[in-house]
């Protein structure tokens, strides 16, 4: 695909879901059942966006993006749009972003820490999408 898809757009979301379903091995996701939503602050046009992911038994069963309001999820991660864009590009790990205070997590940290490698796997897959990040 040569065309760059707009970050968090409907087409980007559809491509992401397709890749996540095909590329993510449920066993490597430890057959986890969970959900998370990223809240993007200070996005293009000053708006707030979300990225929502739901897994059941390690399979990605829902992947949504858009403007707020966001669906409810077990984990909520909030931070600047630019930080999430860096993570999706694979330039920054989500763990490091949390450890340096660039992102703020809500949810049970004891469980979240075990899910951190899984989040990195998801981001690695999403980084495969040719993306126009609409830097703000």
């Amino acid at each position: 695909m040569d065309e760059k898809l707009e970050y968090l757009s409907a087409r980007w979301r559809d491509e992401g879901l397709k890749l996540l379903v095909s590329e993510i091995d449920p066993a490597k996701m430890h057959n986890v059942t969970t959900s998370m939503v990223d809240i993007y602050e200070n996005g293009p046009e000053g708006k707030e966006y979300f990225l929502y992911l739901k897994c059941e038994d390690g399979k990605v069963v829902a992947f949504e993006t858009g403007e707020l309001p966001a669906p409810e999820a077990e984990f909520i991660i909030r931070g600047p749009y630019s930080v999430f864009a860096s993570i999706t590009r694979g330039e920054l790990s989500s763990t490091r972003a949390l450890m340096t205070g660039k992102l703020r997590l809500k949810g049970n940290m004891a469980k979240a820490v075990r899910l951190a490698p899984l989040a990195d796997r998801v981001n690695k897959v999403l980084s495969m999408i040719p993306t126009d990040y609409r830097e703000v």
Partner: peptide, 11 residues
């Protein structure tokens, strides 16, 4: 009901 705290944003 057993939660972890850590040196991370919001945690």
């Amino acid at each position: 009901n057993v939660r972890a705290y850590a040196p991370m944003g919001g945690q």
